[in-house]
Amino acid sequence: MTIERVRTDSHWEAAIGCARAVAAGDRVLVAGTMPLVDGVLQGEGDPYEQARAAFGNALAALKPFGLGADAVVRTRVYLTHLRDVDAAARAHKELFDAHPPASTLVVVSGFVDSRVLVEVELEACREVRTT
């Protein structure tokens, strides 16, 4: 099995020693992704905007593999506040309603950046081709 890795310029990837996304066979895993663009938090204080930005970053990690939202089979949404469930769910529905994945939503005590309200993970599947 071939394993492919995609790295970005994320400070966290370098500090931790991880990749943004890893493909192993037909499975593509996208690491926990925050709503940061060029190191700048998007949507500070707004869980909907943070969810959109975090999912946008995670979906961008699928592009090198030729995949988009329709290939996503599982999402995980981590929130710091129960009150933000509806906002994050609205963002999720807008992106994935046409091809709904299995999804988990968890409320956590916090993230490495206390301004972050939402972090997401994705799992996607490449099309299986037979010859």
Rank of each mutant, 00 (worst) to 15 (best):
Q50L: 07
N57R: 06
L122T: 02
E4Y: 11
H92D: 09
T104L: 12
R129M: 14
A71H: 07
F111M: 05
G68N: 01
V128A: 07
R129C: 14
L95W: 14
A58R: 05
L82M: 11
Q42V: 14
W12P: 12
E121K: 06
R52D: 02
L41T: 12
A102D: 15
E121V: 06
T2M: 13
R90N: 06
A124P: 01
A19R: 04
T75R: 00
R115K: 13
D38I: 07
D86N: 09
V120I: 01
Y48K: 10
K93H: 15
R5H: 06
F55A: 07
P35E: 15
V112G: 15
L67C: 07
V22Q: 03
N57T: 03
T104S: 08
C125R: 05
E4A: 14
E4W: 10
G66T: 00
E4K: 07
P35M: 10
R90S: 03
A19W: 02
A23D: 06
L79M: 07
V120P: 02
K93C: 12
A51E: 00
A98W: 14
R20S: 15
G39T: 07
Q50D: 06
D38V: 09
D9T: 05
A53N: 04
S109M: 10
P100V: 09
V106E: 15
L67W: 02
E127A: 14
F55W: 11
R129N: 12
L122C: 01
G43F: 00
L105Q: 10
S114G: 14
Q50Y: 04
L59N: 03
D38E: 15
R5C: 11
V108G: 12
D113F: 12
I16H: 14
L122H: 00
T80I: 04
A69H: 03
D70K: 10
A19Q: 10
A53C: 11
V72K: 01
A53H: 05
G45E: 03
A87T: 05
V118A: 00
H11M: 14
L122W: 05
T80S: 04
D9I: 06
D26Q: 09
R52M: 14
E123M: 13
F96D: 15
L59S: 04
V77F: 02
R52Y: 02
H81S: 09
V30Q: 00
T8I: 05
V85P: 05
V107C: 13
T80D: 01
A98F: 14
A51V: 08
D97C: 08
E121I: 02
C18S: 15
D97W: 13
G56F: 00
T131S: 15
T131L: 10
T131D: 15
G32V: 08
C125T: 14
L122A: 06
E44Q: 05
S103Y: 14
N57S: 09
D84P: 08
A15G: 06
H81F: 12
S114Q: 15
R76L: 11
T8H: 12
S10C: 15
R52K: 15
G110S: 08
D9M: 08
R74H: 01
A51R: 02
F65D: 13
F55H: 10
R115F: 01
G110K: 03
A98V: 13
V108H: 12
G56N: 04
